Amino acid sequence: MAETFKELERAERDSRWPRAAILDAAHFNADGLMPAIAQQHDSGEVLMMAWMNREALDETLRTGRVCYWSRSRGKLWRKGESSGQQQHLRSASLDCDGDTLLLRVDQTGPACHTGRRSCFYVALEETGARITSDPLIDPDTLYQKP
Rank of each mutant, 00 (worst) to 15 (best):
G84Q: 12
G44W: 03
E59Y: 11
R62M: 09
G64R: 09
D99P: 06
P35I: 03
A25E: 06
L101H: 04
T132A: 11
D58W: 01
T60H: 05
K75G: 02
S15G: 11
R16V: 15
Y143N: 08
D97M: 10
R13S: 15
R54T: 05
G44P: 07
L142R: 06
L101C: 01
D138R: 15
Q40K: 10
L136P: 06
W69Q: 06
W51A: 14
W51Y: 13
A36Y: 02
S15P: 09
Q144E: 13
Y121N: 01
R104S: 01
I131Y: 02
L101A: 02
T141P: 01
A26N: 01
D24G: 12
A2G: 01
S83V: 06
N29W: 07
P146I: 00
H88A: 03
L94R: 05
V122I: 13
Q87W: 14
V122E: 01
P35Y: 04
T60E: 02
D134S: 10
S70G: 09
H88K: 12
L76P: 14
I131R: 03
V122G: 00
D99E: 10
E59T: 12
A111W: 06
V122Y: 00
T108Q: 11
P35T: 04
I137M: 14
S91C: 05
W69A: 02
M49R: 07
Q144T: 07
F5R: 05
S15N: 04
T132M: 10
D106M: 13
A25Y: 12
S15C: 08
R19T: 15
L57W: 15
D14K: 00
R90A: 05
A38V: 05
M1P: 07
E45P: 07
E3D: 14
D14E: 05
E55T: 15
A129H: 06
C96G: 08
Q85I: 04
A20P: 02
G84S: 08
M52W: 10
Q87R: 14
V105Q: 05
Q107T: 11
F28H: 07
S43V: 00
L103S: 03
P35W: 01
D106I: 07
S118K: 02
F120Q: 00
K75C: 07
S118Y: 04
S133L: 08
F5H: 02
T63M: 10
E59V: 13
Y121L: 01
T132C: 14
Q87F: 14
D140S: 15
